[in-house]
Each structure stands twice: as structure tokens, then as C-alpha cells.
Design a protein around this nucleic acid. Structure first.
Lengths: 137, 137
DNA sequence: ACCCCTTATAATAATGATTATCAATTGTAA
DNA sequence: TTACAATTGATAATCATTATTATAAGGGGT
């Protein structure tokens, strides 16, 4: 598993780290273009895949929507906003879930699990309230 | 929310129920075609969406793969096979997870959560062993 | 049975996200 | 500096899903 740290790769990784967000490939593409105007979207996809295979970043595959990538690779869970699609980390005690307790079920060998919360984020809630107030006047 | 139970709708629902599986839209399409050869794939998608909106079936959106549908709507969690993509129910005590405990986090209003296990199912494990045995001879 | 109105259908085009292809370029190592 | 493998940019292809649209049913009410 040798992988050259090319300049494209480096910039993509740095942008993701600096963002402190869970970005999609095309969001990252837009950001990275500022430094490398000739970079291709395919290169962004390819390198995000390579980096996540190498365990340098995480890949988030949340319920039926666009993949997002995460510079934070320590095991943790996420919450997403049903309205604006944003994804945030969530504090959740993963010790509460014991894979061994369900391991026998159906004969699977369990290799991992994730907990995915959904809801409405605070800024979308605020927007809704503003809109409601506006309607009422 | 009135919805006519058309014959297409009825057959799709019945096939899903009788399957006792978590089928994709195109798997269901193949099955339903045996009874309605002229049915369209779009009709299957449309009706699965309608039925799940009405709460008659469940829609499973599992980590970055094709949607699957579930005739069992009681709250429960799933496990999927990394190799063959099959999805099974999992026995998992949902009381272990307390949304209220994470609700304050980031100001989200949490409306739901799901726990998703992954692993290798027993038949894929068996196949691997068979293959390994074959290689060793 | 006939008309009206709404909803659903089949066929197919369009979309959006992602992956594959491939010729050209670059990095590295002998 | 030659030679090989990995990577890139450009773009085509793919896959799952949704949108479009003309046509066809499904129910009333008369």
C-alpha cells in the first residue's frame, strides 16, 4: 500500500482538514480549484477514495445522500439535518453498543457499526420560525 | 392522504411481504413482472415511495448503496453484508440509545436514529472457506 | 350508462453522483 | 537518462433514481 503524496492529494487533504466540516467531493472540488484551477473532479473523487482506503480520512455514507468525507478518523457517530443536509459529529457513548451481543444473530461476523441520528439543525429551526413569523404579519 | 390501492400497488406490496426479504426496487420489478409483464420500473419506484410515505412499508437507506424496502415497519435495525449486499434485521435493544441524551448537542432537534451493523454473512464466509480450500490443494 | 375529474400508468428522457477509460504527464529508481 | 509504474485531466459511461408526458383507469354523481 504505497501511495505518493502528490500535490493534488496534499491540497485536497489540507482543505478537508482546515474546513472542520464534512464536505462532499464537489464541495471540496470547488475549494481546491482556487489553488489548482486545472484539477479535475475525477481527481478529487479518486484521491478521496485513495485517502480513505489508506485510513487517512473517513468516508461518510449517510442514508441515501451524497457521500461526505471526514478528516477525523477516530470512531464517532454523526447527525444530519433533514432540511439542509449538513452533517455534524455527535457525542454518543459507543460503549453502549456491544457488537458481540448481536454477533450470533443470523451468523454474521460483525466488523463494525454506526449510529446515525437525524433531525433539524438549529439554523434551519430558526429559519422556519422567521418564516412563520413573516407569514403571520 | 388518500391513495388508491391499485392492482400494481397491491401486487408490489404483496410480493414484498411474501418475500420476507429486504428487496431493491429492481429486484421487486423482476418479481412483479411475472404477474404484470407490462409494468414499468418507474411504477415500482413510484409506488414504493408512495407506500413508504404512507407508512405501509419502510425504506432502508444503507451506507452508500441501493435503497431497499421492508414490509416490517416496527422500529428495528439492520445489518448488511459487505460482500453480497444482503440486508437482515438485527436484534438490538434500542432502549440502549437515548436520543434525549444527545439532543442538546449542536442544537439539533432529533427526530430519529438508526443503528447499522456491517459484517460478513454466513454464506459468504462459507464461500470464502471453500475457495481457500480449493486454492490450497 | 355517461360525463367529469382526479389519480395512476407506461414509456422514456433526464438527472445526479460516481466510476471507468485512456492518452499524456510525472515521479522515482536503477 | 532511460524505463516503468503511478497519477493526472478530460471525458465518456454507468447506475440508481426522478421527472415528463401522453394515455388510461377509477370512482362518484347525475
Amino acid at each position: 500500500m504505497h501511495m505518493r503524496m502528490t500535490s493534488q492529494r496534499e491540497i485536497i487533504l489540507k482543505e478537508l482538514q482546515d474546513s472542520h466540516q464534512h464536505l462532499t467531493a464537489d464541495e471540496l472540488y470547488e475549494r481546491v480549484k482556487k489553488f489548482m484551477p486545472r484539477i479535475s473532479l475525477a481527481t478529487v473523487y479518486r484521491n478521496l477514495e485513495t485517502l480513505s482506503e489508506a485510513g487517512i480520512i473517513g468516508k461518510l455514507e449517510i442514508s441515501g445522500r451524497q457521500k461526505r468525507f471526514d478528516a477525523d478518523v477516530h470512531p464517532h457517530d454523526h447527525i444530519f439535518c433533514l432540511q439542509c443536509q449538513r452533517v455534524d459529529n455527535i457525542e454518543f457513548d459507543r460503549n453502549l453498543v456491544n457488537p458481540a451481543a448481536v454477533a450470533s444473530d443470523k451468523g454474521y461476523r460483525i466488523t463494525g457499526y454506526r449510529v446515525e441520528f437525524k433531525g433539524i439543525c438549529s439554523s434551519c429551526r430558526n429559519n422556519q420560525e422567521k418564516k412563520r413569523d413573516g407569514d403571520e404579519q
